[in-house]
Design a protein around this nucleic acid. Sequence first.
DNA 1: TTGACATATATCGACTACCAATATATTATA
DNA 2: TATAATATATTGGTAGTCGATATATGTCAA
Lengths: 111, 111
Amino acid sequence: MDKTLLSGSTALLVLKLLEEGDKYGYQMIEELRRRSDDTFSLKAGTLYPLLHSLEQKGYITAWEENSDSARPRRYYHLTDAGKAQLAEKETEWRTYAGAMLRVLEGGACLA
Amino acid sequence: MDKTLLSGSTALLVLKLLEEGDKYGYQMIEELRRRSDDTFSLKAGTLYPLLHSLEQKGYITAWEENSDSARPRRYYHLTDAGKAQLAEKETEWRTYAGAMLRVLEGGACLA
DNA sequence: TTGACATATATCGACTACCAATATATTATA
DNA sequence: TATAATATATTGGTAGTCGATATATGTCAA
């Protein structure tokens, strides 16, 4: 898969996952891979900086799992601002995909 | 529109337009804008370097319009290699869009 | 006629997004 | 004991897009 195709939609994917409930980074990577049938394999080097930036913008908040053992997990929670941003990004993506299909199918059966 | 959404699919759009017949740069910008209902407004600073790179890769060839007056137009023609690349890119995009929809609709009616 | 705008191609610098590589730390398995 | 999976994080590099700018011509209105 061309990685640049994902450009811009990564934030949308992350916000969408968090709409269903609080999740931690590693979990999101696994879930995205599974739900997209291995089409999306989001890299840690992409996700963690993205999570920090979304937090800074107020779209998500973080809370640390209270665990005695193991590496602690940072769970993320979608804020109201995040929900608004999600709605906007989703509309934007559907507009883009629709326009794309229109171009791809515009000259299909004329030649 | 988030410009990064377009990332990676610009080459696909250009190859698709050329599948219908030879076209010149400015014409492609106008046609894309029209066919996408103003969703795509490809910039000259994006298109011309892209055309050069597609030519270098052998996906398209260029021929100069023989005009006495006016600024001459550089028409581009899709090669066989370009047609193969187009098919591959188109499949790739549909895979990506399908996976995207699967994630977006995965948790839609459960909450 | 002069200035503004559309046509038409081209390049450069800046910004953003993504990834590979690397680092760190724990647990489970061989 | 060492290899892999879990889990988060940072850095450096690459690629794609745009804004600004440059150049050159044709058209239309003030």
